[in-house]
């Protein structure tokens, strides 16, 4: 990819932890870029997700599936501290990124989200021009170099450039849903994160737009690590390398908690799941 050089030089070193050491590039190939260890997420005293342990492998797509209320989006949001603004939200256990605990006291959540970006279910472009949407993060992060080049690179990587290059100053809101979602991906990758979290990025899109986003996910794994939450099991089967299946379980006190049931290579999980709860869910034998 032509942008590779720029990419490495402009991606900031991993310095979310002021006192921390940079572990980037020292891991063996295929090593996890993130690791969850016994992660529970609480909203006040309610334990929404209990004891999640799983890796996020570098330059791969990791899918999280499961019924509504199983905690998969909660876990996704815990990966870049998006639950922080929710009053009473709290994480126990460890979420590490290149070996650094993301919830350590001196870690800046803004910097975390700079390295671990997020794309949401509903395309949410700013009510600004296409150009300004992509340039926004670059400007506030004070990224140096020619803004035009960075914007073009991000839009190209998001497979949107050819469709918008002649109308960069037009409102982003005039784009189709699928284009808006790719614009949001461009906005996310413009600041060169390492990990992109996607929360049901295709659920509002038609099959053609969905296919484009899926192609993009596969393409983006050359440079990024992707974690996707999806209700579409075929989508998880199509694009992901590993799949985590979550479910909601009722404990002795009749309280529901989300739980990770099984984490496997995607092919294995969909042909020969280890856990009966996974089998029942993916084959449609619910409840």
């Amino acid at each position: 990819m032509a942008s590779n050089d720029t990419h490495t030089t402009t991606r900031p070193s991993v310095a979310i932890h002021p006192a921390g050491t940079t572990a980037s590039g020292t891991e063996p190939a295929g090593a996890p870029v993130m690791q969850l260890r016994d992660v529970s997420v609480y909203y006040g005293s309610y334990e929404a997700v209990r004891g999640t342990t799983m890796p996020i492998q570098q330059n791969q797509v990791t899918a999280m599936i499961g019924p509504s209320g199983c905690g998969k989006s909660t876990v996704l949001r815990a990966l870049n501290r998006m639950n922080d603004p929710i009053p009473g939200a709290r994480v126990s256990g460890e979420v590490s990124f290149h070996g650094q605990d993301l919830y350590a006291r001196d870690v800046d959540p803004i910097q975390v989200r700079r390295h671990i970006g997020m794309v949401f279910q509903k395309p949410n472009p700013f009510p600004k021009s296409i150009f300004d949407n992509v340039a926004y993060g670059l400007r506030i992060n004070g990224i140096k170099g020619r803004l035009d080049d960075h914007v073009e690179e991000a839009l190209t990587q998001a497979a949107l450039w050819d469709e918008v290059k002649d109308k960069l100053r037009k409102s982003a809101l005039a784009l189709s849903g699928g284009q808006q979602q790719r614009l949001c991906i461009a906005r996310t990758i413009a600041v060169k994160p390492e990990v992109i979290l996607m929360d049901e990025p295709c659920s509002a899109l038609d099959p053609i737009a969905t296919a484009k986003i899926e192609d993009l996910m596969v393409e983006l794994t050359n440079d990024y690590t992707i974690v996707i939450v999806t209700h579409n099991m075929q989508q998880a089967a199509r694009v992901s390398h590993h799949t985590a299946f979550f479910t909601a379980e009722v404990d002795e006190q009749q309280v529901r908690h989300g739980r990770l049931v099984e984490f496997s290579q995607t092919g294995k999980l969909f042909t020969n799941p280890a856990d009966k709860r996974t089998e029942d869910y993916i084959t449609g034998r619910f409840g």
Partner: peptide, 9 residues
């Protein structure tokens, strides 16, 4: 039905 798991097997 796009069967998976034991259905697919």
């Amino acid at each position: 039905h796009q069967p998976v798991a034991s259905d697919l097997r």
